[in-house]
Design a protein around this nucleic acid. Structure first.
Length: 155
DNA sequence: GCCAACGTTGGC
DNA sequence: GCCAACGTTGGC
């Protein structure tokens, strides 16, 4: 999952109650479909900071609640308000995620670029604009290996 | 600040 | 349904 830290950072997640936050405000159909259908409770998450000097994977999180309607779409006050979405027919979805661990130090985009497996990650693809994208098993393991970490998502 | 990539919008 | 125009994203 990718976020501009000025909008919502990994630190923000850590400071959230129970270290849980909802991944709201996604307004892209491809990402919506992932949130609604693909992402399962217990899935591991690489939390990536974008649009900054040193774009990096900051840490790990996991999904604690599967796709449910994004209520900010119904909130007139929200900048993500969308009149096309209603409680009867929600268009946009979100999941809840929970902090797991820091990557210390963060795995930078430079790190990813020079890695045989990670250089092929979705987040490295040109023009990629999704705030949610799939990470495969090899990529997940490769990130953990870079920091000599045990897999925290084994259930 | 530049610019490529991509999604969305709207005229036709 | 096509496609040009436009806005946004995000690395550099």
């Amino acid at each position: 999952m990718k976020s501009e830290p000025s909008c919502f950072s990994f630190e923000d997640l850590k400071r959230s109650p129970g270290r849980i936050a909802c991944w709201d405000g996604v307004r892209n159909y491809q990402a919506r479909n992932l949130l609604r259908e693909e992402i399962k409770k217990g899935d591991g998450i690489l939390f990536y900071h974008s649009n900054i000097k040193l774009p990096s994977i900051e840490g790990l999180a996991k999904v604690v609640r599967e796709g449910y309607p994004d209520h900010t779409a119904w909130d007139l006050e929200s900048e993500h308000y969308d009149p096309k979405s209603s409680t009867a027919n929600p268009i946009w979805f979100m999941v809840d995620i929970q902090y797991l661990a820091d990557l210390d130090p963060p795995v930078t985009r430079e790190d990813l670029k020079s890695h045989p497996v990670l250089s092929k990650m979705g987040v490295m693809k040109r023009g990629n604009r999704l705030s949610v994208m799939p990470v495969d098993e090899r990529e997940w393991k490769a990130v953990l290996d870079l920091r000599d970490m045990a897999d925290p998502v084994v259930s």
